[in-house]
Nucleic acid binder design. Structure first.
Lengths: 238, 238
DNA sequence: GGTCGACTGGGACGAGCGTCCCAGTCGTCC
DNA sequence: GGACGACTGGGACGCTCGTCCCAGTCGACC
């Protein structure tokens, strides 16, 4: 009923779409569902957007935008490389546990984007962005730990993204926090071993992999290395 | 037109559904699409199955079945633990590259299953099965390498499943074989380090992570450690 | 050879989907 | 204050979906 400029409608509609996609997945984002969630009429939708496809593209762009600003790749000085990476991943795990629907939606978005040829490049670009963010995070983490990478950081970053994806998927299925922490330990271990870390206290690796004391809470004070580097969006089914 | 018993119809319909799901994803599995693919009439569908939901459950069960028999967790004696695991994962990578649509469908199936409360347990159960398969594979691999696990094999198996999931997802997005091999190397490294391997030639881990000579083809002669342990199914959208 | 039941095709239903149209209404600017 | 154009609501279109019905037909068994 109030008179709202189309630009404002657009952001309201995208907001509504984001809520729907987290709640019901990509399939739940129909034009009627969106306008109902936003509390407006169907005509307003097609006044603000040319088509549902155009809307979907805008929605994806919005998600990408959001994820971008959620990422602050800062590390805590004074820590070794491995604990820094581990803390960053544990922080991501906290984020995942706090808003699982969102992360699941991101995965679904990616997968469905891969199905449509015109949206596939979008998924690729987004993952490139994840990798770039992870790369920056690993670089600063390496610097702060005084560690030198023995492989291209690009490679390590790609591995980090992959591990984080796997962590996400398996946790979403079984919600097993302890198991997820084991995955984080192993992942951090593997990635840290791609660099020479002078602070590494465990020259013989056989001693370290199971530090049961590690808990997710630690993450808060350290690197947000990967937060969002796996998060975010790509596309949706037709 | 030929007269076919309902039981045979059922397997034909499920066969058709499997083809469709690989081609178009879960959304493409409509009753009409299935009967068209199977070359029969709509009535036959509802004669063979009470409802689409019942059909979906049968479809999932069939996928599970198939994945089960695709798994032969055998190792190649004489190899160290790390190479054995790596070879197994590379073999999975070959499998993935050979039939990407299938693996993508499995992921989509899992994700959509998580959305419906009555199918969520199915996804959990399936992942438990993956983990059990991975566990058996890691156990035999450990025995053959003469290595002793320092963590519960269950834990290592869970990590293997997670890593394989991440490997799958990232490869599906960018199809970057070299990057995927780097992930495999890191993953195999991390998991092998959960055991004491007498055959491990690299006591200082800093020497080994980037053996550029490693190529996917090697996988054929060794353990199928993980093949199928991440593969397979759970459910579909309503 | 007749009967019974498993199986068949085709058409129809109500609901949801994306999209479009159109007559109205309000704010803005000359 | 009049005109123009941005914006509104409601209804309608053609389509696909899952499901159902029903009259018909074939094969197996007594």
């Amino acid at each position: 009923m109030p008179r709202i400029p189309a630009a404002d409608r657009r952001v309201a509609l995208i907001d509504a779409g984001l809520r729907l996609i987290a709640r019901y997945g990509p399939a739940g984002v129909s034009t009627r569902a969106v306008v109902a969630e936003a509390g407006m009429s169907l005509a307003s939708f097609h006044y603000a957007f040319d088509s549902r496809d155009a809307y979907l593209d805008a929605l994806i762009a919005a998600v990408v935008e959001r994820e971008q600003q959620a990422v602050l790749p800062v590390g805590a000085p004074g820590l070794g490389l491995r604990p820094t990476i581990e803390a960053g991943m544990l922080r991501y795990l906290d984020h995942l546990a706090a808003d699982p629907e969102h992360e699941q939606a991101m995965l679904e978005l990616t997968l469905t984007a891969l199905r449509s040829p015109e949206r596939h490049p979008l998924a690729v670009a987004q993952y490139r962005r994840y990798a770039a963010l992870a790369e920056r995070a690993l670089e600063t983490a390496g610097e702060q730990a005084g560690a030198a990478w023995r492989v291209p950081v690009t490679e390590a970053a790609r591995v980090l993204v992959a591990f984080t994806d796997g962590l996400t998927l398996t946790w979403l299925v079984d919600r097993d926090d302890a198991a997820a922490r084991a995955v984080v330990r192993a992942a951090a271990d593997a990635i840290a071993r791609m660099a020479d870390d002078p602070m590494d206290d465990s020259r013989d690796p056989r001693d370290l992999p199971d530090p049961r004391g590690t808990r997710a809470g630690e993450g808060t004070r350290t690197a947000r290395a990967d937060d969002g580097a796996r998060t975010a969006a790509r596309a949706v089914a037709r």
